[in-house]
């Protein structure tokens, strides 16, 4: 029961309180780049969540059974990035073969995910936090859902903003950043929600 409680708290805290984008600044590039339309933002979020959950599992296994068992901490960054890149490649091939519809929706986003720093950040945070296997996977899932939440909300705001009268100087990147700032402020309200 205690175990379950910890897992649940990790999940809620990663989705809302320590949101990867708005609090930890991980994954800002896709957040700014792929948030013009709700639909594409949602697909991107889905693809990222999928890769994040797999990454959490894979890097936990590698870190525990290879890097720590053989005392090779200096290969952590190199091996994690290889794992992520291969995982993304593998997922891309798998989806292309198994579900052309899903591939059409997610395909173009998959290569972008390798250089999404939220994924490597996630892989690096797991050993730092000392999570066990199940907590790590839940952490990955939560991070993905939090990412999806933020990017979809942002896309919703930007779709509405299309009809707004934005000063010329602030059009494009500046207004998106300012919106993100307002969202980050709103998310600060979650910080007292639970204590880990």
């Amino acid at each position: 029961m205690e175990e379950f409680r910890v897992v649940l708290l990790v999940f809620i805290s990663t989705v809302l309180i320590n949101n990867f984008i708005l609090v930890k600044f991980l994954g800002i590039c896709p957040f700014l780049g792929v948030s013009k339309q709700v639909e594409t933002a949602f697909s991107m979020g889905l693809a990222t969540t999928f890769v994040m959950t797999l990454t959490a599992a894979a890097t936990w296994l590698i870190n525990t059974y290879i890097l720590e068992a053989l005392n090779l901490p200096f290969l952590r960054y190199v091996s994690f990035i290889i794992v992520i890149a291969s995982l993304v490649q593998f997922v891309e091939m798998f989806i292309r073969k198994s579900s052309p519809v899903l591939y059409k929706a997610l395909g173009i986003f998959l290569p972008l995910i390798t250089t999404n720093c939220a994924i490597l950040g996630l892989a690096l945070l797991i050993p730092l936090n000392g999570y066990n296997f199940i907590t790590s996977v839940v952490f990955g899932l939560g991070a993905g859902i939090g990412f999806t939440l933020a990017i979809v909300l942002m896309a919703g705001l930007r779709e509405t903003l299309e009809f707004g009268d934005v000063p010329e100087t602030l059009q494009g990147v500046p207004i998106t950043l300012i919106l993100a700032g307002l969202m980050a402020m709103a998310f600060m309200g979650f910080s007292g929600l639970i204590s880990i």
């Binding site: 600044f25 998106t176 950043l177 993100a180 600060m188």
Partner: peptide
Amino acid sequence: LPAGAFLSLG
């Protein structure tokens, strides 16, 4: 804070 980062960069 995070919010300030977004606002000032914007």
